[in-house]
Amino acid sequence: MSHLPLYAQIINLLAAALLLLSFAMLAQRRILSLINLFMAQGIVLCASTAVVAAATEQHHLYWSALITLVLKVFLLPWILHRLIRRLNVKWDIETLINIPATMMIGLMLVIFSFNLALPISELAGTITRSTLGIAMAAVMLAFLMMITRSKAVPQVIGFLAMENGLFFAATSATYGMPMVVELGIALDVLVGMIILGVFFFQIREQFDSLDIRHLEKLKED
């Protein structure tokens, strides 16, 4: 690997950090730590975007990095912290499948994603193409986290983490999306977060709990 340029090595390092953080989120039981992990993922994402920008001299990617920094490192974690303080849900998360089993499934997903990304990254001409598999794995792992958690807040974090993975896939495969699309997605995430925050309060008011298993009663018999 030593013959790779420095930038590429840094990007690969950051991609590995992203994957590691995804696994950490999958294994994490505490909401507070989950939010911190999410913030760390945001930092990694911001850094990798900035490195790609520097390597390829794509200046609009600096703006992307800035938006990521503001939104995913400061604003969303702050909102989430506020939320769990207000809702008073700092305690442990129950998972539907136990953590080791989840990790095993996660491993298989990573292998699957790498296998999947192989032909695509052959086609891509970017310096970051080898990270596409990691980006897809991050999306899948976040999805898996949404499935295995039974509380509402971790599900939302899973949703946000999935968006992180998509963003990383976009930068690694095509040097990012056009600015308009990126701004639109950023706004969507923010608005989605706010709406979900409102829903949290509604759910708790209805069921005295944020456990979404209560929503199973909504099924029609």
Partner: peptide
């Protein structure tokens, strides 16, 4: 199919996604 559990519904879309990706591959 309609189990009323969000996790199951998420699983449906997840499995669909994985299967479709696999087929494309």
């Amino acid at each position: 199919l309609q189990q009323g559990r969000i996790s199951i519904y998420l699983l449906y879309s997840f499995v669909t996604l994985v299967v479709l990706l696999f087929l494309i591959r």
